[in-house]
Design a protein around this nucleic acid. Structure first.
Length: 434
RNA sequence: GCAGGGGUUCCCGAGUGGCCAAAGGGAUCAGACUGUAAAUCUGACGCGCGAGCUUCGGUGGUUCGAAUCCACCCCCCUGCACCA
């Protein structure tokens, strides 16, 4: 008999993690007993990004409180595409590609929950297992019959697609909700799963499932949605100039990941600590109070970066990220040893190796753009004009543009071959010239 | 199938024969100020160090000159018809 932590719901609320729940006031009492819950993740890429972090961590919070989590990977739903609050119809991915992504997500999702802890061990399922084998007639007669088009059309999540001039929605995407509802009913049957969690954009799909569980199995199921993560300045959370922040270290290095969190705005950081870490709410309030009281740079960002990086990339990933950060931002570049430089490369600092012969022909603008420190030569030019390009600590100017070879002269190299190129205040790139 | 409305540079969105690499806003990048914040101000923002080059769904055409005009084609949306 595993005990359940009855303060879970209050904690979620204190963290601001509760957007909506079913069952009005009953919901908190419902969690007094050990439940089985699930959350779905659709394979829309070969990696999840930090947008999925909130539900992922919430599954873990439930597990820590004594509930049994199920992570569902949408091998079937990923073939359809969720229309919820999407402005446009999306193009379909091939079955092979989706199957590959399913495998990637399975691995990723697995690292967040515990699969070996007795009764509350997590499960990993793929909805293709039951949707893939269902025939059309069964689907239409046994499942479709329970859905009212009138009802579905009125869902807020598809309203703009239906009402907005110039856009539409295909039957394929419109059916997405039914598939997701079917998942819930299936998991109810298989695991007595009675709770689904998801982003607030999933509310319509979740309540659809709750209804289907009742109609198909006469059971009572619940739903909980998590808030959409927003930033105080109104820009989209989880994107930077270099694109999406992925959970896969091959796509976003632990260093870049760490830097992303370190750059969180003050206006958001305490909220993010509540969302993305397992630090107690009281501790977080303590940090906030401490930062407010002191006139110095707040501590919250570094705590956030540290905690989240460790959750996603483990102690080793965090160590690497901190090592690079310290080398680049805190100590002087000249203090780095050759081993340090090599380690930085291994740790995921962007780097490239060039042959000395390649340097002669190219202007800096072209070289640095090719290497990926800047999006285009124009940006390099702009930076050069403002003394914002630094090679091994030495600022370069527009005059140096055509003197690439001199900029990378062996005399200036660290250990005869390494150059740390900095463009702007934060972007570093290690060039290894052989 | 018919009728009508659309497809512009990352996004939104102006532009209907030269003054258009294309208004404006957003996003993004760089600088100043800072704390590797925010706000603000400045600059950049198709590609190219540059001369210059390549764009406005596609292909042809008219014209000295086209994102803008014409023809055909592709795609999207709305309505009607067909089907049921």
């Amino acid at each position: 008999m595993s005990s359940v932590d009855k303060s879970l719901f209050a904690d979620l609320q204190a963290r601001g993690l509760v957007a909506q729940t079913t069952g009005a006031g009953e919901f908190e009492r419902y969690l007094d007993e050990a439940r089985t819950l699930y959350c779905g993740f659709d394979p829309t890429a070969n990696s999840l990004h930090i947008g999925s972090l909130v539900p992922l961590l919430t599954l873990k919070r439930f597990q820590l409180a004594g509930h049994k989590p199920i992570a569902l990977v949408g091998g079937a739903t990923g073939l359809i595409g969720d229309p919820s609050f999407k402005a446009q119809e999306r193009s379909l991915n091939s079955r092979e590609v989706v199957a590959e992504w399913v495998d990637c997500l399975k691995r990723q999702v697995s690292q967040f929950v515990d699969f070996d802890c007795g009764g509350k061990s997590a499960e990993l399922v793929n909805n293709l297992d039951w949707v893939g084998s269902m025939d059309v007639l069964t689907f239409l007669r046994d499942v479709g019959k329970h859905f009212s088009i009138n009802n579905m059309i009125n869902k807020e999540s598809v309203k703009q697609r239906i009402e907005r001039e110039g856009e539409g929605i295909s039957y394929t995407e419109f059916s997405y909700m039914i598939l997701q509802s079917l998942d819930f009913a299936e998991l109810y049957k298989r695991y007595n799963c009675t709770l689904q969690i998801g982003g607030s954009d999933q509310w319509g799909n979740i309540t659809g499932g709750v209804d289907l569980v009742r109609r198909l199995h006469g059971g009572t199921a619940h739903g909980l949605t998590l808030p959409l993560v927003t930033k105080a300045d109104g820009t989209k959370f989880g994107k930077t100039e270099s694109g999406t922040i992925w959970l896969d270290p091959a796509r976003t290095s632990p260093y870049a990941f760490y830097q992303f969190w370190l750059n969180t705005a003050d206006a958001d950081v305490y909220k993010f600590l509540r969302y993305f870490t397992f630090l107690g709410v009281e501790d977080i309030e303590g940090i906030e109070a401490g930062d407010k009281a002191s006139q110095e740079k707040p501590k919250a960002q570094s705590i956030l970066a540290k905690e989240v990086t460790r959750l996603v990339h483990g102690a080793t990933g965090l160590e690497a990220a901190e090592r690079i950060t310290q080398a680049l931002f805190e100590s002087s570049l000249g203090a780095l040893t050759e081993a340090d430089l090599q380690q930085l490369k291994l740790d995921g600092l962007p780097s490239s190796s060039l042959r000395r012969g390649e340097l002669a022909e190219k202007p800096l603008t072209q070289l640095l753009a090719e290497v990926g420190v800047a999006a285009s030569g124009k940006q390099v030019k702009d930076a050069l004009g403002r003394q914002a390009v630094t090679i091994n600590g030495e600022a370069k100017s527009l005059d140096d543009n055509m003197r690439t070879e001199a900029c990378f002269s062996p005399d200036a190299a660290y250990f005869g071959r390494y150059f740390l190129v900095k463009v702007g205040k934060k972007k570093y790139h290690l060039v290894d010239v052989k």
